[in-house]
């Protein structure tokens, strides 16, 4: 199998991110997928982006400007 290399933008493992562990993934160019050394996550960029969007969803106020304090 090909050598794992740094992928674009230092994608973190989305599954580790869900438990608040920042774990940079490696990219397997031959298979076109990212993989995690820690939790066995594997997936293409589209899967990473989908799970990242899921991660952000917990911040219900992420788009809200709050001025009433």
């Amino acid at each position: 199998m090909a050598q794992g290399r740094k992928g674009k933008l230092n994608y973190r493992c989305p599954r580790c991110l869900m438990r608040e562990i920042d774990m940079d993934m490696l990219y397997d160019g031959a298979a076109g997928e990212y993989y995690c050394l820690r939790c066995s996550f594997v997936g293409p960029e589209s899967q990473v982006l989908r799970l990242n969007a899921q991660f952000r969803a917990k911040y219900l106020d992420r788009t809200r400007r709050i001025t009433d304090f």
Binding site: R56, Y59, R62, R64
Partner: peptide
């Protein structure tokens, strides 16, 4: 890093 944004805006 915490991904508290949407569409490149960070009101947070």
């Amino acid at each position: 890093r915490g991904m508290v944004y949407e569409d490149r805006e960070i009101p947070y």
